[in-house]
Design a protein around this nucleic acid. Structure first.
Lengths: 234, 234
DNA sequence: TAGATTGTTAATCGATTAACAATC
DNA sequence: TAGATTGTTAATCGATTAACAATC
Protein backbone atom coordinates (compact mmCIF):
# COMPACT_ATOMS: atom_id res chain seq x y z
CA UNK A 1 0.00 0.00 0.00
CA UNK A 2 1.43 3.36 -0.98
CA UNK A 3 0.47 6.93 -0.27
CA UNK A 4 -3.25 7.48 -0.05
CA UNK A 5 -4.70 10.90 0.21
CA UNK A 6 -8.02 11.06 1.94
CA UNK A 7 -10.09 10.75 -1.19
CA UNK A 8 -13.77 10.06 -0.84
CA UNK A 9 -13.26 6.31 -0.86
CA UNK A 10 -10.80 6.41 2.00
CA UNK A 11 -12.37 8.80 4.44
CA UNK A 12 -12.16 7.27 7.89
CA UNK A 13 -15.45 7.41 9.70
CA UNK A 14 -15.24 7.09 13.49
CA UNK A 15 -16.78 3.91 14.85
CA UNK A 16 -19.23 5.83 17.02
CA UNK A 17 -20.47 7.61 13.93
CA UNK A 18 -20.79 4.38 11.95
CA UNK A 19 -22.98 2.98 14.71
CA UNK A 20 -25.33 5.95 14.42
CA UNK A 21 -25.68 6.06 10.64
CA UNK A 22 -28.30 3.27 10.64
CA UNK A 23 -30.28 5.23 13.19
CA UNK A 24 -30.26 8.29 10.95
CA UNK A 25 -31.22 6.12 8.01
CA UNK A 26 -34.23 4.79 9.83
CA UNK A 27 -35.27 8.25 10.99
CA UNK A 28 -35.03 9.58 7.43
CA UNK A 29 -37.16 6.70 6.18
CA UNK A 30 -39.77 7.53 8.78
CA UNK A 31 -39.72 11.20 7.76
CA UNK A 32 -40.01 10.28 4.08
CA UNK A 33 -42.91 7.91 4.85
CA UNK A 34 -44.79 10.74 6.50
CA UNK A 35 -44.34 12.89 3.44
CA UNK A 36 -41.62 15.21 4.67
CA UNK A 37 -39.28 16.31 1.87
CA UNK A 38 -36.83 18.54 3.72
CA UNK A 39 -35.60 18.61 7.28
CA UNK A 40 -33.15 20.57 9.41
CA UNK A 41 -30.41 18.95 11.46
CA UNK A 42 -32.57 19.76 14.47
CA UNK A 43 -35.54 17.87 13.02
CA UNK A 44 -33.53 14.82 12.10
CA UNK A 45 -31.56 14.81 15.33
CA UNK A 46 -34.70 14.82 17.38
CA UNK A 47 -36.19 11.98 15.30
CA UNK A 48 -33.01 10.01 15.86
CA UNK A 49 -32.68 10.80 19.55
CA UNK A 50 -29.36 12.64 19.42
CA UNK A 51 -28.41 16.30 19.64
CA UNK A 52 -28.06 18.29 16.47
CA UNK A 53 -24.37 19.14 16.93
CA UNK A 54 -23.54 15.47 17.01
CA UNK A 55 -25.68 14.79 13.97
CA UNK A 56 -24.01 17.52 11.92
CA UNK A 57 -20.59 16.38 13.02
CA UNK A 58 -21.46 12.80 12.02
CA UNK A 59 -22.79 13.84 8.62
CA UNK A 60 -19.72 15.96 7.98
CA UNK A 61 -17.66 12.73 7.77
CA UNK A 62 -19.75 11.63 4.78
CA UNK A 63 -19.55 14.84 2.85
CA UNK A 64 -21.55 18.00 2.50
CA UNK A 65 -25.08 16.97 1.68
CA UNK A 66 -27.05 19.81 3.22
CA UNK A 67 -27.84 23.35 2.19
CA UNK A 68 -27.02 26.16 4.62
CA UNK A 69 -30.05 28.11 5.57
CA UNK A 70 -32.33 25.35 4.26
CA UNK A 71 -31.51 21.92 5.65
CA UNK A 72 -31.35 18.47 4.07
CA UNK A 73 -33.33 16.91 1.26
CA UNK A 74 -34.72 13.82 2.96
CA UNK A 75 -34.53 11.43 0.00
CA UNK A 76 -31.12 12.61 -1.11
CA UNK A 77 -29.58 12.32 2.34
CA UNK A 78 -31.21 8.96 2.84
CA UNK A 79 -29.66 7.67 -0.34
CA UNK A 80 -26.23 9.01 0.58
CA UNK A 81 -26.31 7.35 3.98
CA UNK A 82 -27.59 4.08 2.55
CA UNK A 83 -24.78 4.15 0.02
CA UNK A 84 -22.20 4.90 2.69
CA UNK A 85 -23.43 2.01 4.86
CA UNK A 86 -23.61 -0.23 1.84
CA UNK A 87 -27.28 -1.13 1.91
CA UNK A 88 -28.32 0.18 -1.48
CA UNK A 89 -28.60 -3.47 -2.44
CA UNK A 90 -29.20 -6.62 -0.37
CA UNK A 91 -26.52 -8.58 1.46
CA UNK A 92 -27.02 -12.34 1.60
CA UNK A 93 -27.14 -13.65 5.17
CA UNK A 94 -27.18 -17.13 6.72
CA UNK A 95 -28.61 -17.91 10.13
CA UNK A 96 -27.21 -20.85 12.08
CA UNK A 97 -29.27 -22.19 14.98
CA UNK A 98 -33.00 -22.29 14.42
CA UNK A 99 -34.26 -22.51 17.99
CA UNK A 100 -36.68 -20.00 19.45
CA UNK A 101 -34.43 -17.08 18.69
CA UNK A 102 -33.40 -18.27 15.23
CA UNK A 103 -37.09 -18.65 14.46
CA UNK A 104 -37.77 -15.11 15.53
CA UNK A 105 -34.85 -13.78 13.50
CA UNK A 106 -35.92 -15.71 10.42
CA UNK A 107 -39.39 -14.23 10.69
CA UNK A 108 -38.12 -10.71 11.21
CA UNK A 109 -39.82 -8.76 8.46
CA UNK A 110 -37.44 -5.82 8.30
CA UNK A 111 -34.58 -7.78 6.73
CA UNK A 112 -35.38 -7.17 3.12
CA UNK A 113 -36.24 -3.54 3.35
CA UNK A 114 -33.10 -2.82 5.35
CA UNK A 115 -30.52 -4.28 3.04
CA UNK A 116 -30.43 -7.99 3.88
CA UNK A 117 -31.72 -11.22 2.44
CA UNK A 118 -31.81 -14.54 4.29
CA UNK A 119 -30.47 -17.14 1.90
CA UNK A 120 -30.31 -20.08 4.30
CA UNK A 121 -31.27 -21.36 7.73
CA UNK A 122 -29.05 -24.10 9.15
CA UNK A 123 -29.19 -26.30 12.22
CA UNK A 124 -27.32 -29.33 13.46
CA UNK A 125 -30.46 -30.92 14.90
CA UNK A 126 -31.90 -33.53 12.46
CA UNK A 127 -35.33 -32.91 13.99
CA UNK A 128 -35.30 -29.36 12.66
CA UNK A 129 -33.77 -30.04 9.27
CA UNK A 130 -36.35 -30.05 6.53
CA UNK A 131 -38.86 -27.99 8.46
CA UNK A 132 -39.95 -24.78 6.81
CA UNK A 133 -39.40 -21.60 8.80
CA UNK A 134 -40.48 -18.26 7.40
CA UNK A 135 -40.77 -19.87 4.00
CA UNK A 136 -37.25 -21.27 4.01
CA UNK A 137 -36.33 -24.93 4.49
CA UNK A 138 -33.91 -25.59 7.32
CA UNK A 139 -30.72 -27.22 6.01
CA UNK A 140 -28.21 -29.41 7.84
CA UNK A 141 -25.37 -27.38 9.34
CA UNK A 142 -22.95 -29.39 7.23
CA UNK A 143 -24.20 -27.62 4.15
CA UNK A 144 -22.78 -24.36 5.45
CA UNK A 145 -19.75 -24.30 3.17
CA UNK A 146 -21.69 -25.11 0.03
CA UNK A 147 -24.37 -22.55 0.83
CA UNK A 148 -21.92 -19.78 1.61
CA UNK A 149 -20.08 -20.41 -1.64
CA UNK A 150 -23.21 -20.62 -3.75
CA UNK A 151 -24.69 -17.42 -2.45
CA UNK A 152 -21.53 -15.42 -1.84
CA UNK A 153 -22.48 -14.96 1.79
CA UNK A 154 -20.37 -12.49 3.73
CA UNK A 155 -22.45 -12.11 6.88
CA UNK A 156 -23.33 -14.93 9.26
CA UNK A 157 -25.72 -14.88 12.21
CA UNK A 158 -25.15 -17.25 15.14
CA UNK A 159 -28.21 -18.11 17.20
CA UNK A 160 -27.05 -21.39 18.69
CA UNK A 161 -26.52 -22.28 22.35
CA UNK A 162 -23.31 -20.85 23.81
CA UNK A 163 -21.49 -24.16 23.73
CA UNK A 164 -21.77 -24.45 19.94
CA UNK A 165 -21.00 -20.85 19.05
CA UNK A 166 -17.22 -21.05 18.75
CA UNK A 167 -17.41 -24.08 16.45
CA UNK A 168 -19.91 -22.35 14.24
CA UNK A 169 -17.76 -19.23 14.13
CA UNK A 170 -14.69 -21.28 13.20
CA UNK A 171 -16.52 -22.92 10.34
CA UNK A 172 -17.84 -19.57 9.16
CA UNK A 173 -14.41 -18.00 9.25
CA UNK A 174 -12.83 -20.96 7.49
CA UNK A 175 -15.18 -20.64 4.54
CA UNK A 176 -14.55 -16.91 4.26
CA UNK A 177 -17.25 -15.15 6.22
CA UNK A 178 -15.80 -11.96 7.65
CA UNK A 179 -18.75 -10.49 9.53
CA UNK A 180 -20.58 -12.29 12.31
CA UNK A 181 -23.55 -11.26 14.39
CA UNK A 182 -23.47 -13.35 17.55
CA UNK A 183 -26.54 -13.90 19.72
CA UNK A 184 -24.99 -16.73 21.72
CA UNK A 185 -23.84 -15.72 25.20
CA UNK A 186 -20.19 -16.54 24.53
CA UNK A 187 -17.02 -14.64 23.71
CA UNK A 188 -15.89 -15.60 20.22
CA UNK A 189 -12.26 -15.79 19.23
CA UNK A 190 -11.77 -14.84 15.59
CA UNK A 191 -8.76 -13.81 13.51
CA UNK A 192 -7.90 -10.24 12.60
CA UNK A 193 -10.07 -8.92 9.83
CA UNK A 194 -13.23 -10.65 11.01
CA UNK A 195 -15.82 -8.38 12.60
CA UNK A 196 -17.98 -9.74 15.35
CA UNK A 197 -20.89 -7.93 16.89
CA UNK A 198 -22.65 -9.31 19.89
CA UNK A 199 -26.22 -9.05 21.05
CA UNK A 200 -26.71 -10.27 24.58
CA UNK A 201 -29.96 -10.14 26.50
CA UNK A 202 -28.52 -10.90 29.94
CA UNK A 203 -25.84 -8.29 29.61
CA UNK A 204 -28.34 -5.60 28.64
CA UNK A 205 -30.59 -6.52 31.54
CA UNK A 206 -27.68 -6.54 33.97
CA UNK A 207 -26.62 -3.08 32.86
CA UNK A 208 -30.15 -1.90 33.58
CA UNK A 209 -30.11 -3.71 36.93
CA UNK A 210 -26.96 -1.85 37.93
CA UNK A 211 -28.56 1.52 37.33
CA UNK A 212 -31.82 0.39 38.87
CA UNK A 213 -30.01 -0.64 42.02
CA UNK A 214 -28.32 2.73 42.25
CA UNK A 215 -31.65 4.48 41.93
CA UNK A 216 -33.10 2.26 44.64
CA UNK A 217 -30.16 3.07 46.88
CA UNK A 218 -30.80 6.76 46.47
CA UNK A 219 -27.26 7.13 45.24
CA UNK A 220 -28.44 9.48 42.59
CA UNK A 221 -30.49 12.30 44.05
CA UNK A 222 -33.32 13.62 41.98
CA UNK A 223 -33.72 12.30 38.46
CA UNK A 224 -31.36 9.37 38.21
CA UNK A 225 -29.79 11.00 35.17
CA UNK A 226 -28.01 8.21 33.44
CA UNK A 227 -29.03 7.94 29.83
CA UNK A 228 -27.60 4.70 28.61
CA UNK A 229 -24.29 4.18 26.89
CA UNK A 230 -26.06 3.58 23.65
CA UNK A 231 -27.40 7.05 23.61
CA UNK A 232 -30.60 6.45 25.48
CA UNK A 233 -33.23 9.01 24.75
CA UNK A 234 -32.62 12.69 24.94
CA UNK B 1 -28.46 14.72 51.13
CA UNK B 2 -25.50 17.04 51.69
CA UNK B 3 -21.75 16.55 51.60
CA UNK B 4 -20.84 13.12 50.37
CA UNK B 5 -17.37 11.77 50.43
CA UNK B 6 -16.72 9.05 47.92
CA UNK B 7 -17.66 6.27 50.28
CA UNK B 8 -18.09 2.80 48.88
CA UNK B 9 -21.75 3.35 48.13
CA UNK B 10 -21.12 6.42 46.05
CA UNK B 11 -18.20 5.44 43.93
CA UNK B 12 -18.91 6.46 40.36
CA UNK B 13 -18.25 3.67 37.92
CA UNK B 14 -17.73 4.76 34.31
CA UNK B 15 -20.45 3.63 31.95
CA UNK B 16 -18.00 1.70 29.78
CA UNK B 17 -16.91 -0.25 32.82
CA UNK B 18 -20.48 -0.97 33.90
CA UNK B 19 -21.15 -2.46 30.46
CA UNK B 20 -18.23 -4.86 30.88
CA UNK B 21 -18.97 -6.05 34.41
CA UNK B 22 -21.59 -8.56 33.18
CA UNK B 23 -19.01 -9.94 30.76
CA UNK B 24 -16.55 -10.48 33.58
CA UNK B 25 -19.29 -12.06 35.67
CA UNK B 26 -20.06 -14.56 32.96
CA UNK B 27 -16.38 -15.35 32.41
CA UNK B 28 -15.91 -15.94 36.14
CA UNK B 29 -18.91 -18.27 36.20
CA UNK B 30 -17.41 -20.24 33.33
CA UNK B 31 -14.07 -20.46 35.14
CA UNK B 32 -15.78 -21.59 38.35
CA UNK B 33 -17.79 -24.19 36.43
CA UNK B 34 -14.61 -25.69 35.08
CA UNK B 35 -13.22 -25.99 38.58
CA UNK B 36 -10.79 -23.08 38.55
CA UNK B 37 -10.45 -21.47 41.99
CA UNK B 38 -7.95 -18.70 41.30
CA UNK B 39 -7.11 -16.67 38.23
CA UNK B 40 -4.84 -13.82 37.21
CA UNK B 41 -6.03 -10.67 35.53
CA UNK B 42 -4.48 -12.10 32.37
CA UNK B 43 -6.56 -15.30 32.63
CA UNK B 44 -9.80 -13.50 33.27
CA UNK B 45 -9.15 -10.85 30.64
CA UNK B 46 -8.56 -13.45 27.99
CA UNK B 47 -11.74 -15.32 28.99
CA UNK B 48 -13.65 -12.07 28.72
CA UNK B 49 -12.06 -10.93 25.48
CA UNK B 50 -10.43 -7.73 26.76
CA UNK B 51 -6.85 -6.81 27.60
CA UNK B 52 -5.65 -7.21 31.15
CA UNK B 53 -4.86 -3.55 31.75
CA UNK B 54 -8.45 -2.66 31.01
CA UNK B 55 -9.71 -5.42 33.25
CA UNK B 56 -7.59 -4.30 36.20
CA UNK B 57 -8.59 -0.71 35.66
CA UNK B 58 -12.24 -1.73 35.59
CA UNK B 59 -11.96 -3.82 38.76
CA UNK B 60 -10.17 -1.00 40.52
CA UNK B 61 -13.41 1.00 40.46
CA UNK B 62 -15.10 -1.68 42.57
CA UNK B 63 -12.41 -2.01 45.18
CA UNK B 64 -9.34 -4.06 45.79
CA UNK B 65 -10.39 -7.67 45.53
CA UNK B 66 -7.19 -9.29 44.26
CA UNK B 67 -3.95 -10.33 45.89
CA UNK B 68 -0.72 -9.02 44.43
CA UNK B 69 1.54 -11.79 43.25
CA UNK B 70 -1.36 -14.25 43.36
CA UNK B 71 -4.44 -13.10 41.44
CA UNK B 72 -8.14 -13.25 42.19
CA UNK B 73 -10.22 -15.81 44.05
CA UNK B 74 -12.79 -16.72 41.41
CA UNK B 75 -15.79 -17.19 43.72
CA UNK B 76 -15.03 -14.13 45.80
CA UNK B 77 -14.59 -11.84 42.82
CA UNK B 78 -17.68 -13.27 41.20
CA UNK B 79 -19.72 -12.47 44.27
CA UNK B 80 -18.34 -8.95 44.49
CA UNK B 81 -19.18 -8.22 40.88
CA UNK B 82 -22.65 -9.74 41.19
CA UNK B 83 -23.25 -7.56 44.25
CA UNK B 84 -22.01 -4.46 42.46
CA UNK B 85 -24.29 -5.11 39.47
CA UNK B 86 -27.15 -5.95 41.78
CA UNK B 87 -27.88 -9.49 40.70
CA UNK B 88 -27.34 -11.27 43.97
CA UNK B 89 -31.10 -11.68 43.98
CA UNK B 90 -33.66 -11.77 41.18
CA UNK B 91 -35.25 -8.74 39.56
CA UNK B 92 -38.87 -9.14 38.46
CA UNK B 93 -39.34 -8.41 34.77
CA UNK B 94 -42.37 -8.05 32.48
CA UNK B 95 -42.31 -8.66 28.76
CA UNK B 96 -44.77 -6.81 26.55
CA UNK B 97 -45.35 -8.12 23.04
CA UNK B 98 -45.44 -11.89 22.71
CA UNK B 99 -44.81 -12.32 18.99
CA UNK B 100 -41.96 -14.38 17.64
CA UNK B 101 -39.37 -12.40 19.53
CA UNK B 102 -41.34 -12.17 22.76
CA UNK B 103 -41.76 -15.93 22.60
CA UNK B 104 -38.04 -16.41 22.23
CA UNK B 105 -37.31 -14.05 25.11
CA UNK B 106 -39.85 -15.75 27.36
CA UNK B 107 -38.20 -19.09 26.66
CA UNK B 108 -34.70 -17.79 27.25
CA UNK B 109 -33.35 -20.08 29.92
CA UNK B 110 -30.61 -17.83 31.24
CA UNK B 111 -32.97 -15.39 32.95
CA UNK B 112 -33.19 -16.99 36.34
CA UNK B 113 -29.55 -17.84 36.74
CA UNK B 114 -28.53 -14.36 35.73
CA UNK B 115 -30.57 -12.35 38.15
CA UNK B 116 -33.99 -12.01 36.54
CA UNK B 117 -37.42 -13.54 36.88
CA UNK B 118 -40.22 -13.15 34.36
CA UNK B 119 -43.35 -12.34 36.31
CA UNK B 120 -45.67 -11.61 33.40
CA UNK B 121 -46.11 -11.72 29.65
CA UNK B 122 -48.53 -9.21 28.17
CA UNK B 123 -49.98 -8.62 24.74
CA UNK B 124 -52.71 -6.46 23.29
CA UNK B 125 -53.83 -9.17 20.88
CA UNK B 126 -56.87 -11.08 22.27
CA UNK B 127 -55.81 -14.09 20.18
CA UNK B 128 -52.65 -14.42 22.27
CA UNK B 129 -54.13 -13.69 25.65
CA UNK B 130 -54.65 -16.83 27.68
CA UNK B 131 -52.13 -18.86 25.76
CA UNK B 132 -49.33 -20.33 27.81
CA UNK B 133 -45.80 -19.40 26.76
CA UNK B 134 -42.82 -20.82 28.61
CA UNK B 135 -45.17 -21.85 31.39
CA UNK B 136 -46.66 -18.40 31.86
CA UNK B 137 -50.14 -17.35 30.77
CA UNK B 138 -50.23 -14.33 28.48
CA UNK B 139 -52.23 -11.50 30.06
CA UNK B 140 -54.04 -8.62 28.40
CA UNK B 141 -51.83 -5.55 28.07
CA UNK B 142 -54.36 -3.62 30.15
CA UNK B 143 -53.28 -5.57 33.21
CA UNK B 144 -49.85 -3.94 33.02
CA UNK B 145 -50.42 -1.50 35.88
CA UNK B 146 -51.86 -4.10 38.22
CA UNK B 147 -49.08 -6.56 37.47
CA UNK B 148 -46.30 -4.04 37.90
CA UNK B 149 -47.71 -2.97 41.24
CA UNK B 150 -48.27 -6.51 42.49
CA UNK B 151 -44.80 -7.69 41.66
CA UNK B 152 -42.83 -4.52 42.24
CA UNK B 153 -41.53 -4.61 38.69
CA UNK B 154 -38.77 -2.14 37.91
CA UNK B 155 -37.63 -3.48 34.54
CA UNK B 156 -39.79 -3.76 31.44
CA UNK B 157 -38.99 -5.42 28.13
CA UNK B 158 -40.66 -4.16 24.94
CA UNK B 159 -40.92 -6.67 22.11
CA UNK B 160 -43.82 -5.13 20.21
CA UNK B 161 -43.88 -3.78 16.67
CA UNK B 162 -42.27 -0.36 16.32
CA UNK B 163 -45.58 1.44 16.05
CA UNK B 164 -46.70 0.33 19.51
CA UNK B 165 -43.43 0.81 21.34
CA UNK B 166 -43.83 4.43 22.43
CA UNK B 167 -47.29 3.77 23.86
CA UNK B 168 -46.02 0.81 25.81
CA UNK B 169 -43.08 2.84 27.10
CA UNK B 170 -45.40 5.64 28.18
CA UNK B 171 -47.58 3.24 30.13
CA UNK B 172 -44.54 1.64 31.73
CA UNK B 173 -43.10 4.98 32.75
CA UNK B 174 -46.45 6.17 34.08
CA UNK B 175 -46.71 3.21 36.44
CA UNK B 176 -43.17 3.69 37.70
CA UNK B 177 -40.91 1.47 35.65
CA UNK B 178 -37.54 3.20 35.33
CA UNK B 179 -35.57 0.72 33.22
CA UNK B 180 -36.63 -0.42 29.76
CA UNK B 181 -35.04 -2.86 27.37
CA UNK B 182 -36.38 -2.04 23.92
CA UNK B 183 -36.34 -4.53 21.06
CA UNK B 184 -38.68 -2.54 18.87
CA UNK B 185 -36.96 -0.63 16.06
CA UNK B 186 -38.04 2.76 17.32
CA UNK B 187 -36.49 5.64 19.23
CA UNK B 188 -38.25 5.98 22.57
CA UNK B 189 -38.78 9.30 24.27
CA UNK B 190 -38.70 8.94 28.04
CA UNK B 191 -38.28 11.39 30.90
CA UNK B 192 -34.99 11.96 32.73
CA UNK B 193 -34.26 9.24 35.17
CA UNK B 194 -35.60 6.44 33.00
CA UNK B 195 -32.92 4.26 31.44
CA UNK B 196 -33.54 2.79 28.03
CA UNK B 197 -31.32 0.26 26.35
CA UNK B 198 -31.95 -0.75 22.79
CA UNK B 199 -31.31 -4.00 20.98
CA UNK B 200 -31.69 -3.65 17.24
CA UNK B 201 -31.05 -6.40 14.72
CA UNK B 202 -31.05 -4.20 11.61
CA UNK B 203 -28.68 -1.71 13.12
CA UNK B 204 -26.18 -4.39 14.08
CA UNK B 205 -26.35 -5.90 10.61
CA UNK B 206 -25.94 -2.52 8.98
CA UNK B 207 -22.85 -1.79 11.04
CA UNK B 208 -21.41 -5.09 9.83
CA UNK B 209 -22.41 -4.26 6.27
CA UNK B 210 -20.51 -0.98 6.45
CA UNK B 211 -17.30 -2.73 7.43
CA UNK B 212 -17.92 -5.53 4.97
CA UNK B 213 -18.28 -3.05 2.18
CA UNK B 214 -14.99 -1.39 3.08
CA UNK B 215 -13.26 -4.75 3.05
CA UNK B 216 -14.74 -5.55 -0.35
CA UNK B 217 -13.56 -2.19 -1.63
CA UNK B 218 -10.03 -3.03 -0.61
CA UNK B 219 -10.00 -0.09 1.77
CA UNK B 220 -8.63 -2.40 4.42
CA UNK B 221 -5.63 -4.29 3.11
CA UNK B 222 -4.88 -7.69 4.55
CA UNK B 223 -7.23 -10.57 5.26
CA UNK B 224 -10.91 -10.84 4.57
CA UNK B 225 -11.08 -9.32 1.11
CA UNK B 226 -11.97 -12.71 -0.30
CA UNK B 227 -15.42 -14.20 -0.09
CA UNK B 228 -17.58 -11.12 -0.05
CA UNK B 229 -20.36 -10.51 -2.47
CA UNK B 230 -18.98 -7.76 -4.63
CA UNK B 231 -20.63 -4.92 -2.82
CA UNK B 232 -21.61 -3.47 -6.17
CA UNK B 233 -21.98 0.01 -4.77
CA UNK B 234 -18.21 0.25 -4.98
C1' DT C 1 14.31 -13.32 49.54
C1' DA C 2 12.95 -13.56 44.47
C1' DG C 3 9.30 -13.92 41.42
C1' DA C 4 4.75 -12.77 40.31
C1' DT C 5 0.92 -9.95 39.79
C1' DT C 6 -2.03 -6.34 41.38
C1' DG C 7 -3.66 -1.49 41.59
C1' DT C 8 -2.51 3.09 39.98
C1' DT C 9 -0.41 6.65 37.34
C1' DA C 10 0.04 9.34 33.40
C1' DA C 11 0.06 9.67 28.57
C1' DT C 12 -2.69 9.01 24.58
C1' DC C 13 -6.52 8.50 22.00
C1' DG C 14 -11.28 9.12 20.55
C1' DA C 15 -15.97 11.13 21.23
C1' DT C 16 -18.95 14.91 22.51
C1' DT C 17 -20.43 19.53 22.62
C1' DA C 18 -21.05 24.52 22.16
C1' DA C 19 -20.13 28.16 19.50
C1' DC C 20 -19.79 30.53 15.24
C1' DA C 21 -18.07 31.72 10.61
C1' DA C 22 -19.57 30.48 6.13
C1' DT C 23 -23.16 30.72 3.07
C1' DC C 24 -27.67 29.63 1.23
C1' DT D 1 -30.65 41.97 2.10
C1' DA D 2 -31.95 39.52 6.57
C1' DG D 3 -32.82 35.27 8.56
C1' DA D 4 -31.78 30.57 8.85
C1' DT D 5 -28.99 26.70 9.13
C1' DT D 6 -25.01 24.14 7.80
C1' DG D 7 -20.20 22.53 8.34
C1' DT D 8 -16.16 23.22 11.15
C1' DT D 9 -13.37 24.61 14.93
C1' DA D 10 -11.64 24.12 19.38
C1' DA D 11 -12.42 23.04 24.04
C1' DT D 12 -13.84 19.46 27.06
C1' DC D 13 -14.80 15.14 28.53
C1' DG D 14 -14.32 10.17 28.95
C1' DA D 15 -12.01 5.73 27.72
C1' DT D 16 -7.93 3.07 26.71
C1' DT D 17 -3.35 1.60 27.31
C1' DA D 18 1.45 0.82 28.75
C1' DA D 19 4.34 1.07 32.31
C1' DC D 20 5.66 0.39 36.94
C1' DA D 21 5.71 0.97 41.98
C1' DA D 22 3.55 -1.51 45.61
C1' DT D 23 3.25 -5.69 47.74
C1' DC D 24 1.94 -10.49 48.27
Amino acid sequence: MTARSSTDANRVIPEATVARLPVYLRALTALADSGIRTCSSEDLASAAGVNSAKLRKDLSYLGSYGTRGVGYDVDYLRYQIAREIGVTQDWPVVIVGIGNLGHALANFSGFRSRGFRIVALLDADPELVGQTVAGVQVQPFDELEETVRNHDVAIGVIATPAVAAQDVADRMVAIGITSILNFAPAVLAVPEGVDVRKVDLSIELQILAYHEQRKANGAEPGPAAAATADGGAA
